[in-house]
Design a protein around this nucleic acid. Structure first.
Length: 286
DNA sequence: CAATCAACCTGGGTGC
DNA sequence: TGCACCCAGGTTGATT
């Protein structure tokens, strides 16, 4: 589900709701491996702790506590939804805009806050995870995580180096790789390549200067446009209030197989590349 | 080291 | 209705 714009949306929402709040109690539903710490350690590390701030790092949601960090990864179908307890009704809290209720059969973990706020971690496919890290462990992870495409460190020079490192593979695979550049996933790689007019099959090392510049500019452009619309809901993504993102209507190629290219009218191609469904216009992307 | 691919899990959609 | 596929916003560990 969530790529950079979706994770950014949820993190910003949660920052507003959770900043300064104190964790009172945790509830784990069912037995599963979504919590990466042992359950007693996890509870002990979190109960009574105050949230300093919430932000995004790569595709992770980082909750900075007064000591240590809580990290979430939503993977494909994870959701973090916050509601105030006083607005809960018997059988769950219906969320007006989508009709989704929390808790529901996909709720795996619940955080109760001292102000009466409740944070629900839902995940249909159970790929998502959460873990508590001490300060040193978080700093090591942060250091080992790749470059942020919306940061000032994302320079043309750094981008060229990243392309060069993956020069013998396709642009699709190179941009999906989180090792050196983080945040892009299947939707935004396709959209970025469409914007840049480049075929996903092109080898990363084959770009001319002008093409590299186009691609370099397309990455933050597309990501920012999606953040402004609060991300893309294709099937499961919801923000921290249970609302859908608004970027799906602006997608040019992703999910538009056989429909007309918005630029030239040719049918959008879909095939499998780097193990993922890949959408592009054969006419506009060279 | 770099590239590929199955595996993790559940649900939705399609075709017979 | 049922069943047998195929597909899905991510990552990782095994295998070439």
């Amino acid at each position: 589900m969530p790529e950079l714009p979706e994770v950014e949306t949820v993190a910003n929402d949660l920052n507003q709701y959770l900043r300064g709040k104190i964790i009172a109690r945790l509830e784990l539903i069912g037995r599963h491996s979504l919590v990466k710490n042992s359950w007693p350690d996890f509870k002990k590390s979190l109960q009574g702790k105050k949230v300093l701030k919430v932000y995004r790092r790569a595709k992770m949601i980082v909750v900075a506590l007064e000591s240590g960090y809580l990290l979430f990864h939503l993977k494909m179908t994870g959701q973090l939804i916050y509601v105030l307890k006083k607005s809960l009704v018997a059988g769950g809290h219906p969320i007006a805009s989508t009709g989704v209720a929390v808790p529901n059969k996909f709720t795996r973990l619940i955080f109760h806050f001292k102000n009466g706020g409740v944070l629900y971690f839902n995940d249909i496919r159970k790929f998502g995870w959460v873990k508590f890290l001490k300060n040193e462990a978080f700093e090591a992870l942060d250091k080992a995580t790749g470059l942020e495409p919306l940061s000032k460190e994302f320079t043309f020079k750094r981008f060229e180096e990243i392309l060069q490192r993956r020069s013998r593979t396709s642009l699709k695979a190179a941009l999906l790789d989180q090792k050196h550049l983080v945040g892009l996933g299947n939707i935004y790689v396709d959209e970025v390549l469409y914007n840049a007019g480049l075929s996903p099959k092109r080898l990363a090392g084959s770009l001319k200067e002008k093409e590299k510049i186009k691609l370099f500019k397309a990455i933050p452009l597309i990501l920012k446009k999606s953040i402004a619309r609060r991300g893309t809901t294709f099937s499961d993504f919801l923000d921290a209030q249970g609302r859908q993102g608004g970027f799906a209507a602006l997608l040019k190629v992703y999910g538009r197989a056989s429909l007309a290219c918005p630029r030239c009218g040719a049918p959008i191609i879909k095939s499998r590349l780097a193990g993922r469904g890949t959408h592009w216009c054969k006419n506009c992307q060279k």
